[in-house]
Nucleic acid binder design. Structure first.
Lengths: 175, 175
DNA sequence: TTCGATGCAAATGGTTTGCATGCTT
DNA sequence: AAGCATGCAAACCATTTGCATCGAA
């Protein structure tokens, strides 16, 4: 995203806060700016804190969470759960995103043809009277390599012990 | 599910554990049985513990989590995140499920034609070399009633305070 | 000046883990 | 008997909250 569009978006986002009666603090400016400058990546709370602190070192983690909650309640931010033990955040843009991740090795792929897929999904929800909000869909699967490795078929018990988790976190579920 | 199919499934699930070298303990039997007897509902860890303890009061919460992790790592159980502050669990069946929930009022609808949708989604992932695992997709949207109420357009600030969350939990994100 | 917003640190609570013991194989 | 599985309780750690203070309007 070019600088021009970023500052334009920042003003747009801040304006949405202002019009609803919320105050425009420097912390909120910095957090919104950080989110918009990192549109491609899904930051988690800690990463967002560290980046924001480069702009304003006084920002604390509580403000990060409170701002995230505020923006989420206004539909200005989505939460993304990649089953890592914490959440990530994204500023929704006009399109939706479709990710597939491998439950064995963790590899994640961004699916193409988002507009086509978005139209399909909107039609599904529309048939029930729902209008979908911009969001990212996460689908769990197995990548070709892991299938060829026989991840699910081969016994997990090798040499007397449970085989180590290839994803490095062995089914952690803490969110 | 009739009794016959349940005990059949239990044996199937326990057999999958055994064939991979895991021991068949009474706790695992009870937990698997509890999950299968409650196929429609998505139990969380505490609910699963309470139900399992009706069969075997000695079962502890740690065993619940360890069994869940084991089954999940074997692809025998999915985690469901309904943004409640904890996870729920489901035993995957052959088909996938597609839910739309209203981000304003929380209403959830189970979409029809699962087989058609499943075929579409599988094709999307297959194009990138992934094979999808059975799972439930959650899509966030706005229902017709809430759109007509103008949820997103009206200012959230009414009478000097933040309007109460219509979904009752106002953006909690703790998982 | 008012009172919403923040930083700090403590609290929360779902989930994980260390360790002695139990039980399947 | 060997060693995986369990119960218990303590530890973890992302997120939330109380409170004194700051600062936008």
């Amino acid at each position: 995203m070019q600088e021009g569009r970023i500052s334009e978006s920042i003003e747009d986002y801040l304006g949405r806060l202002k019009s609803r009666g919320f105050r425009l603090t420097n912390q909120r400016r910095v957090i919104v700016e950080t989110l918009l400058r990192n549109l491609g990546t899904h930051l988690n709370a800690r990463e967002l804190l560290e980046l924001a602190q480069q702009e304003d070192p006084s920002i604390g983690i509580a403000t990060i969470y409170r701002t995230i909650e505020l923006m989420n309640s206004l539909g200005m931010l989505n939460m993304v759960n990649l089953e890592e033990g914490f959440l990530r955040f994204e500023v929704p843009d006009e399109r939706m995103h479709f990710h597939v991740f491998c439950r064995s090795c963790g590899k994640t792929v961004h699916l193409p043809d988002e507009d086509t897929k978005m139209a399909d999904v909107r039609k599904w929800a529309g048939a029930e009277g729902f209008e979908l909000l911009p969001q990212t869909f996460e689908m769990a699967g197995l990548c070709r390599e892991c299938r060829e490795d026989g991840v699910l078929e081969e016994p997990l018990l090798v040499g007397g012990g449970r085989r180590r988790c290839r994803r490095g976190r062995c089914g952690r579920m803490k969110q």
